[in-house]
């Protein structure tokens, strides 16, 4: 067992049981230093509320989202088919993930290829846990702070989820302020569609700089994110304006874990 007490689905299977929910960590959550902190925050919350969850560990592989959006449908379907074989082999029914790209792909594009799961974003799980009383949070250090939420495209417009992340943030007794472009009208951070993995085309500005200007205009001191890629883009944007010490980029899971003193 590892330091954080994280079990794999294989661990459960070895004991002849199954987890209730699979935590799909995603590539960013597994390897990116910043995103790993989000992963750990989620694990702390999951351990705290005593959910029977597991990860795939070394059996997890990229969902294929960046390949598909970059035009490599072949590679996407190869990834999807092998992931589905593993997920179905373990009879996975429910998946939670902190990456809206994994969330969207698993939820919308896997069913046609044989992968049928109930897929939720971690902010939806957090809302559920708080609403059902399993997780109790108070504002703590966040109380009264001006916080804005950046809608990830693949959670918001792509899947119509605008409320869950906001509902969770509001539990922290904060002043939730909206950027001028939010919800259906939210502006992309610039990472989607495989842009994360390439240089931007020639233009007058980077998309994340444009979005960071919305953040600055909102006067928030924390910008809440729900996607590891948005997190990176906004962090870079704030560094560009030398505002990294005044404005923090935090995933909602990190805020909840911190507020719940986990």
């Amino acid at each position: 067992m590892n330091a954080l007490n994280v079990k794999t689905v294989a661990d459960y299977t070895a004991q002849g049981t199954k987890p209730d929910i699979l935590f799909w960590v995603g590539c960013a959550g597994s390897f990116d230093d910043r995103a790993k902190k989000i992963t750990k925050a989620i694990v702390k919350i999951l351990n705290h509320v005593d959910i029977k969850y597991a990860v795939l560990g070394a059996e997890e592989s990229c969902t294929g989202d960046p390949a598909k959006r970059a035009g490599n449908e072949f590679l996407f379907q190869m990834q999807a088919m092998s992931n589905i074989a593993i997920l179905n082999g373990y009879e996975v029914k429910k998946i939670v993930t902190a990456c809206p790209h994994c969330f969207n792909t698993l939820k919308n594009e896997y069913p046609e290829l044989g992968g049928h799961y109930e897929v939720i974003h971690h902010t939806q799980l957090l809302q559920e846990l708080i609403d059902s009383g399993k997780l109790k949070v108070e504002g703590g250090t966040f109380k009264g702070k001006k916080i804005t939420f950046h809608d990830p495209c693949y959670l918001g417009r792509a899947n119509g989820e605008y409320l869950a992340p906001r509902a969770v943030i509001e539990k922290l007794d904060v002043e939730l302020v909206e950027m001028k472009r939010c919800k259906t009208n939210g502006l992309c951070c610039g990472a989607g569609g495989a842009q994360m993995f390439k240089e931007a085309e020639k233009g007058t500005k980077e998309v994340n700089i444009e979005r960071t200007e919305d953040v600055l205009e909102s006067k928030a001191t924390i910008v809440a994110a729900g996607c590891p890629f948005c997190n990176t883009m906004l962090t870079d944007g704030l560094k560009h304006y030398n505002k990294q010490d005044e404005i923090q980029v935090m995933d909602i899971a990190e805020m909840i874990a911190q507020a719940a003193d986990l």
Binding site: V25, C27, S30, K40, G57, C62, A67
Partner: peptide, 21 residues
């Protein structure tokens, strides 16, 4: 992605390394 199941050059075997960090 083809070789190690992630868009970056990390080994798939290391996907759970964060749990020990």
């Amino acid at each position: 992605i083809e070789n190690n199941g992630a868009p970056w050059q990390y080994s798939q075997a290391d996907r759970l390394k964060w749990a020990n960090e």
